[in-house]
Design a binder for these strands. Structure first.
Lengths: 251, 251
DNA sequence: CATGTCAACATTTTCGAAAATCTCTTTCCG
DNA sequence: CGGAAAGAGATTTTCGAAAATGTTGACATG
């Protein structure tokens, strides 16, 4: 046993997406995380060119770590790299948003089915507390719709809730894709903050989904989740028209 | 119209995974592709440390492009990066293989449904020719099971066939995930070449799936595809036991 | 004998400058 | 006037060396 090659003894998990909480020890990693946040939160505009000189000043690093950070974020699609032409913040593309939303619907449905079949006790506990935290943040936001920090807190907890739903499925690859897709979705949702009041709080839907999951009712949970995504997609498609009209009028 | 901000006018698509055919113009990109192939084809061993000095000689590049290449491949999970400790070829983990396989089954089923609903004429044509090419390669391989090049050709066409199945769905994100997952799957499949005769050629299954797709019979296609994956999973799980017994005996 | 500390070494990470590539303007010719 | 060619300028990409970090083994200590 003791002489088995090390590829068999390593504990498994893709260890891809760096966990949101743990800070990387290298400059490149830190810059990558800052970049991600700056893009998701629209501190960097969609379509904006990312020049090394400017970013070097902004993040106070040399070209090497900056370059590595850009590649990390580019692999995720939040920036696009063109050979010898540099990097650009990924543009806003409503068709892509729909694609992301549909794929999320599929993946999370798959995940919740797995979680309901295999999820253990701590999955239930985490899910329950994630929902509670989301609910409280929802109440806070509806009290003051314009507070950036409250909305950001809500976003974080919303992500945590959906993540908690999926977590029980025990598929690291799925959770990795979840993270990548959710980053994009959050960016799109934040994009609409500028153009419209917050989409109707869907916490009752979240609660229904959670209850179905805790009841281990696979079909009900799947149906509710699909409906949840479809409703969100409808709402954002309406906003899309609004935004495009506004953009057309401005020209 | 002409003054619309550029994020609306860009044509859409995530443009993530660099297309397999088009060669990157930067050193880093080229090295990344070579690295991918070397890992998938086991020219670099699972678990092997990737030291800059050695890789610098191997690929004849400096540290900067090498580092960028490693990050690109690390984002895909074929190598894992540890801060200040360097890079390692992703280990072989059978649990992960099962995860990848299950996720592929789900994603490709989702894709084939979309393709059957929305796929256009050229999708059908591409699918048909991809199958034909796969079939021919299968015949060639069964004639000489030990020819590396023939098997590699078969692998390429097998990927192309599954890709052609999914392509009609028109979801760039799904196709991106497909590429990432398939790279891992191919690596695992090649891993078994060393330990076992090739898994039974499943070209009759491929043909049945293709026909169902061309008949636009969504349910039949989905069922056949699921069965296809389940059968492959069973086969590889058997091989897994064999490999693990061999590894245990060797120690 | 086990445990902790320190120094020397190996390796990764970062920096700053040189080389390569692209872009934009100007110029020249049909 | 239109379009190709050329050159200046801006930007990205690459290299090689310096700085930072992790690792190993010897030595001292409980």
């Amino acid at each position: 046993m003791r002489n088995m090659p090390k590829q068999f003894t390593r504990k498994w998990g893709p260890s891809l997406h760096p966990s949101r909480d743990e800070a990387p020890k290298t400059l490149a990693g830190r810059v990558a995380q800052q970049l991600r946040l700056d893009i998701i939160r629209h501190h960097l505009e969609p379509g904006e060119r990312l020049q090394f000189e400017k970013l070097s000043k902004r993040y106070e690093v040399g070209t090497s770590p900056l370059r590595e950070a850009l590649f990390q974020v580019a692999a995720q699609g939040l920036v696009v790299a063109e050979d010898h032409k540099g990097f650009v913040v990924a543009p806003i593309q409503f068709d892509e948003m729909l694609d992301v939303s549909n794929l999320r619907a599929n993946l999370e449905t798959y995940a919740i089915r797995g979680a309901i079949q295999e999820g253990r006790e701590d999955w239930e506990v985490d899910l329950l507390s994630a929902f509670h935290r989301l609910k409280l943040a929802g109440i806070a936001v509806s009290a003051d719709q314009d507070d950036e920090d409250l909305r950001t807190e809500w976003e974080d907890r919303h992500r945590a809730f959906h993540y908690a739903l999926c977590k029980g499925c025990g598929s690291p690859w799925l959770l990795h894709f979840f993270d990548e897709l959710y980053d994009h979705m959050e960016r799109y949702r934040r994009y609409f903050w500028k153009y419209a009041e917050r989409a109707v709080a869907a916490d009752n839907e979240h609660e229904a989904i959670m209850k179905a999951a805790l009841d281990r009712d696979e079909e009900r949970a799947a149906t509710l989740l699909q409906a949840h995504f479809q409703k969100q997609a409808r709402l954002t498609m309406n906003l899309r028209k609004k935004v495009e009209r506004a953009a057309a009028a401005a020209s």
